[in-house]
Amino acid sequence: MTSVILATATRYLMPMLLLFSAFLLFRGHNLPGGGFIGGLVAAATFILHSLVFGVGETRKILRVRPVKLMGLGLLIAMASGLVGVFTRAPFLTGKWYELVLGQGDKWHVGTPVFFDVGVYLVVIGATLIIILSLAEED
């Protein structure tokens, strides 16, 4: 798998694919997309990289171990549910806040967004663990 075309294309595609996965994640609340799909796209990006450059290289650019990514995701999802609890509502109640950014701009931010980020990370972590571990088997 040392095709120059594939290697070069992957190098240019990687950032765009990752950006696309984040785009899918954040548009998910109003348009097709979301944490699950975004996570799968991100995982697929890294897998493409590992196909071209080998699993070792992929682990290097990942920096964090997928196991930690997965745990972090679950933690974020749980923590987003606790916000509800601390405002005396049931666990996982969606809470929305408006952040005023000046000049009349407002940013709508809510706990479901963080929940979705958690889902995103768990999906990336779990998929990468399974596929990278299998790819490394010898």
Partner: peptide, 14 residues
């Protein structure tokens, strides 16, 4: 109630 237009996603995360 859930501030989202994508019903599938709102069901999943909220």
């Amino acid at each position: 109630k859930a501030h989202g237009r994508n019903i599938v996603n709102v069901i999943i995360v909220d």
